[in-house]
Simulated scan of single mutants.
Amino acid sequence: MLVNADFSQRVIVSSRQYQWVASPQAGIERVMLDRAGEEKGRATSIVKYAPGSYFPRHVHAGGEEILVLAGVFSEGEEHYGAGWYLRNPPDSSHRPYSEEGATIFVKLHQMPPHEQCRVRINTRDASIWRRQGNNEICPLFSSEFEQVWLQYLAPYESMLVKSVTGTELLVLTGGLAVDDVAHEHGSWMRLPVGDELEVTAGKQGATLYIKTGHLRGALMGL
Rank of each mutant, 00 (worst) to 15 (best):
Val119Gln: 05
Ser92His: 07
Lys40Cys: 01
Tyr97His: 15
Lys48Gln: 11
Leu67Gln: 07
Gly76Ser: 09
Glu64Leu: 11
Pro96Asn: 10
Gln110Ser: 15
Tyr54Leu: 13
Leu140Val: 03
Arg130Asn: 11
Tyr97Met: 07
Pro56Cys: 09
Cys117Val: 13
Gly71Ser: 06
Arg87Cys: 04
His60Pro: 07
Thr123Lys: 08
Ser98Arg: 09
Asn134Met: 01
Pro96Met: 09
Arg42Lys: 11
Ile128Pro: 05
Val72Arg: 12
His79Trp: 04
Thr123Pro: 09
Gly81His: 11
Glu100Asp: 12
Gly71Leu: 05
Lys40Thr: 14
Val72Trp: 03
Val119Ser: 04
Arg130Lys: 15
His58Ile: 03
Gly81Trp: 14
Pro56Asp: 08
His79Pro: 00
Asp91Leu: 14
Thr44Cys: 14
Ala70Tyr: 06
Glu78Leu: 14
Tyr49Met: 00
His94Val: 02
His79Cys: 10
Ala126Met: 05
Leu67Glu: 01
Cys117Tyr: 10
Gly63Asp: 02
Gly71Pro: 04
Leu108Thr: 12
Glu136Ser: 12
Gly101Met: 08
Arg131Ser: 11
Gly62Met: 06
Leu108Asn: 06
Arg130Pro: 00
Tyr85Thr: 02
Pro139Cys: 04
Ala82Pro: 13
Pro51Gln: 08
Trp84Thr: 03
His79Ser: 15
Leu69Gly: 05
Pro113Asp: 11
Phe105Lys: 05
His60Thr: 08
Lys48Leu: 01
Ser45Pro: 00
Arg118Glu: 08
Ala43Thr: 13
Pro139Ile: 02
Glu64Lys: 06
Glu65Thr: 12
Glu78His: 15
Ile104Gly: 07
Glu99Tyr: 04
Thr44Lys: 05
Arg130Trp: 00
Leu140Phe: 08
Ile46Arg: 07
Val72Phe: 07
Gln110Leu: 12
His114Leu: 03
Tyr80Glu: 01
Glu39Lys: 07
Lys40Leu: 10
Ala61Ser: 14
Gln110Gly: 15
Glu65Tyr: 04
Thr44Ala: 12
Ala82Val: 03
Gly76Gln: 07
Leu86Thr: 06
Glu64Val: 07
Asp125Thr: 02
Val59Leu: 13
Phe55Pro: 01
Glu75Cys: 05
Glu39Ala: 12
Tyr85Trp: 15
Val68Pro: 06
Met111Phe: 15
Glu99Arg: 13
Gly101Tyr: 11
Pro51Arg: 09
Ile104Asp: 06
Glu136Asn: 07
Arg131Leu: 01
His109Leu: 00
His94Glu: 04
Arg124Phe: 14
His60Asn: 10
Tyr49Gln: 01
His114Val: 02
Pro56Trp: 12
Ala102Phe: 10
Asn135Trp: 11
Pro56Val: 07
Glu39Phe: 12
Val59Tyr: 05
Arg124Ile: 00
Ser74Tyr: 08
Glu100Gln: 14
Gln132Tyr: 08
Leu108His: 13
Ile104His: 09
Arg118Gln: 12
Glu78Ile: 00
Asn122Thr: 04
Ala50Asn: 10
Lys40Pro: 00
Ser127Val: 03
Ser45His: 02
His79Thr: 12
Asn135Leu: 12
Cys117Arg: 15
Gly81Tyr: 13
Gln116Trp: 01
Leu86Pro: 09
Leu108Arg: 13
Lys48Ala: 03
Arg87His: 02
Pro112Gly: 06
Ser45Asp: 00
Arg124Lys: 14
Arg124Leu: 12
Gly41Thr: 09
Thr123Ile: 04
Tyr80Met: 02
Gly83Ile: 06
His60Phe: 10
Trp129Ala: 03
Tyr49Ile: 00
